[in-house]
Design a binder for these strands. Structure first.
Lengths: 247, 247
DNA sequence: CGTCGTATTGAATGGGTTCAAGTAGCGTGG
DNA sequence: CCACGCTACTTGAACCCATTCAATACGACG
């Protein structure tokens, strides 16, 4: 745990600006937030179900996921998060966690006490609005995942997840040219989409066989963007990005 | 369309107080909101995907649902809403609708312009926080549904929905004694939980056969609350109710 | 009393799971 | 430098929960 430097909070600014414009004084106020940096290995718990945290975690690097556990080791991954996200922002207003939060890869987190965020929001209501907006986009993504799990085929679900992750990463400068890191296992994908790892494997092969995507190690390449969007019935409206998505 | 009377906004106050305390001046400010009342038949659209509304709808009576449509008439219901809910509150900060909104039963809505809500939130930040909290609870319910659709059996999903609806209705005074109105069809239940109507029917029979619930016309009776909770793996934490749930 | 939407039942089909075994890649330590 | 062990990935085959198709029954309403 070390004190965060100003530049550590830049991902947050980029993220907020991807959903709402910020003034210079707002940017400065964010950079002035006190934060301590936590460095975590892959597959480590950050928060557990029923915890009552007093701070929020801004992701500086790495991937993090939210999840719920059920009987017999069943797991539902609720969301994936990358640099610039605050996956536990809801704890600012909902004191008890109703799910867990854990790293997927090794990650660096900036921990910011609730009280400082509350101060910030009072002094700069515009930032409060941006954060609220962020939680609303979060909810929009949950709705889309629900729809996928409930009504899409395995192949469509996976293609949809890939289209979404690509655009999310692109929005914060972590992807371009229909190519991005995808540091998650097939088991993770299954747990996120309500599928068995076996079926994820077969569906991935089908996706490659159709020439829609390819996987080079941990790099996902979307070979055919329009084709993938069609297979997924993907419509980026729900991401509510300021900038429109690629063709 | 007629001007709303003050008493029409009481459901909203009850709802907000079920998630956060309000001061007397805050209550008065809410009662002072200008609202026009819309009266709708069952099965009518309120908002469509891609709409850009300039007002929010507070439900005064009846049931409303949010939904997404997919290819070949497939439909995913995202949530059910009752008196006191503002199902399109997200439109305050996300200009474009990413889903539809429609009545399930006949309903009365109080329509409140965005600008008036924004004024209110600026004058009373506490109300803003309560509304933000409400959207966060909304998101928590999406997460729980996602988990159910992804990882629970048909029987567990239906039992879970019933437990949830009972507590939501109880919180606003529309249910007690493990008994509530359930004015939705088996098709609606299927569309909400990612099931076919046929399978919903069979699962309902199983639920009745086990003595967990009974249906008397449009009235749902949860005959065995602990048993239903167990079958559903139901844990009310995610509803973030101020008052604890029944044993 | 006919009609339309909802509920119910039976039978065939299928997408996805489960179980089981085998393979590939990679870091670690002897 | 290779053996070892761990984890992720891959493949085959049997099984099952849930869907689809189809027919019938019910019930409210004009």
């Amino acid at each position: 745990m070390v004190q965060a430097s100003n530049s550590d909070l830049i991902p947050l600014i980029r993220k907020l600006e991807s959903i709402a414009p910020l003034s210079e004084s707002e940017r400065q106020a964010i950079l002035g937030l006190p934060a301590t940096v936590r460095v975590l290995e892959a597959r480590q718990d950050i928060l557990r179900d029923k915890d009552r945290p007093s701070l929020c975690c801004l992701i500086l690097s790495g991937w993090v996921c939210r999840f719920k556990l059920l009987h017999e080791g069943k797991r539902q991954i609720l969301s994936f998060h990358v640099a610039g996200d605050i996956p536990d922002l809801s704890s600012l207003h909902l004191p008890v966690m109703d799910h867990g939060l854990a790293t997927v890869t090794a990650a660096r987190l900036a921990c910011i006490p609730h009280e400082n965020i509350r101060d910030l929001v009072i002094r700069f209501p515009g930032i409060g609005t941006a954060l609220w907006r962020d939680t609303l986009v979060d909810a929009a993504i949950f709705r889309e995942w629900m729809t996928g799990i409930g009504r899409r085929t395995a192949l469509g679900r996976i293609a949809h997840l890939f289209c979404e992750m690509y655009l999310k990463l692109q929005a914060v400068g972590l992807a371009e040219g229909y190519r991005c890191e995808l540091p998650i296992t097939q088991i993770d994908i299954g747990d996120a989409l309500g599928l068995s790892n076996v079926h994820v494997n077969r569906s991935l092969q089908a996706l490659r066989g159709r020439g829609l995507i390819s996987l080079q190690g941990r790099t996902l390449v979307i070979e055919d963007w329009p084709g993938s969007c069609a297979a997924a019935e993907f419509d980026a409206t729900y991401l509510h990005l300021e900038r429109p998505s690629p063709a």
